[in-house]
């Protein structure tokens, strides 16, 4: 189980790093486009689609599992002051399990959608070329699935300090 937790922590971190790579790629890609257009009058017509469909989805969905492990999801702590540590911990565990269910639902929606887009080989028509974009629909499916798993591990990490260490969870 410890090894599994370690794996989950590692995969989540690795995906978050893929997200950072997407940030860098997005910046350089857009700047290259601006430079080519202004200096050499060359139009890179694929830039908006690549940015929107690959970089943006990469940044948004791949780090979700890592965000959950690091407990960086935003909530409104209206009752925080009225809770004992014990009660808060219990409530955190419940929240993580509910969160996992919501991610399962999102993944449940995303996988068939991705498969459907893959089957029809979805592309967009840019100026005069057909640019395939169906691969990008798998990114949310992967991100939500791992986030669902990460939430369960986080719930476990909340009750077991050793699991928390193996996961690389943030300390309170």
């Amino acid at each position: 189980m410890q090894a599994l937790a370690k794996l989950a922590g590692g995969v989540s971190r690795a995906l978050a790093y893929v997200g950072t790579a997407a940030v860098v790629a997005m910046m350089l890609h857009i700047c290259l486009d601006v430079a080519l257009r202004n200096l050499f009058n060359i139009a890179m017509n694929t830039t908006p689609e690549i940015v929107a469909r690959y970089y943006m989805t990469g940044i948004a969905f791949l780090p979700l599992a890592w965000l959950e492990l690091r407990r960086q999801m935003i909530s409104v702590e209206l009752l925080e002051f009225a809770m004992t540590d014990r009660l808060r911990r219990q409530s955190d565990v419940v929240v993580m399990i509910v969160a996992s269910l919501v991610y399962v639902a999102l993944a449940w929606g995303a996988w068939p959608k991705a498969l459907k887009e893959a089957r029809s080989g979805t592309f967009v028509e840019l100026v005069s070329l057909q640019f395939e974009v169906w691969h990008s629909y798998f990114i949310p499916a992967v991100g939500f699935s791992l986030a669902a798993v990460a939430c369960l591990f986080t719930a476990w990490g909340l009750v077991s300090p050793r699991a928390a260490d193996a996961l690389g969870m943030a300390r309170e």
Binding site: V23, M26, M27, I30, P48, E49, V51, A52, R53, Y55, M56, T57, I59, A60, F61, A105, L106, W108, G109, A110, P112, K113, S136, Y137, P140, F144
Partner: peptide, 23 residues
């Protein structure tokens, strides 16, 4: 309801205008 669950995440995020936010 499932349709909206499946469709909204991708269509909200995969947006050229929205890319200005991370940048």
């Amino acid at each position: 309801a499932i349709g909206i669950l499946a469709n909204t995440p991708y269509s909200f995020v995969a947006s050229w205008t929205m890319s200005a936010v991370p940048m």
